[in-house]
């Protein structure tokens, strides 16, 4: 391995370690909140899929194609049984 490549790999490794140590937790929390928002959005457009009446679905259908990849996870999260650990771990 050349000296240049070694330094580059070392820099990358150090960046990843420092990211993991300092920021990974924060990024995960942000993405988790982002997921909740996404699920709320899907609820607003596809609520009637779960029995919540919503507005006439005409414009929801225009947005439906974008929500397709997340529908499964959204329904799963919605139907999931909850216990006290959810209060602690969210």
């Amino acid at each position: 391995m050349s000296k240049g490549r070694f330094i580059s790999s070392l820099r990358k490794a150090l960046t990843e370690v420092s990211y993991g140590a300092a920021l990974h937790g924060q990024v995960s929390a942000v993405l988790k909140t982002r997921m909740y928002i996404e699920h709320m959005f899907i609820l607003m457009i596809l609520g009637d899929m779960l029995g919540f009446p919503i507005l006439p679905p005409y414009y929801s259908l225009r947005l439906l194609p974008y929500a397709v990849p997340n529908v499964k996870a959204w329904k799963h999260r919605f139907y999931r049984e909850r216990d006290f650990t959810d209060v602690i771990y969210g």
């Binding site: 920021l23 990024v27 993405l31």
Partner: peptide, 30 residues
């Protein structure tokens, strides 16, 4: 219907913009 739909779309936009903000924060942190 025009009024009701407009306020619904505005709420959706609000939620979407919030989601976008979180995308930006996550990207910056990464």
């Amino acid at each position: 219907m025009a009024d009701v739909l407009t306020s619904w779309v505005e709420k959706l936009t609000e939620v979407r913009e919030k989601a976008r903000e979180y995308d930006e924060i996550a990207s910056k942190l990464k």
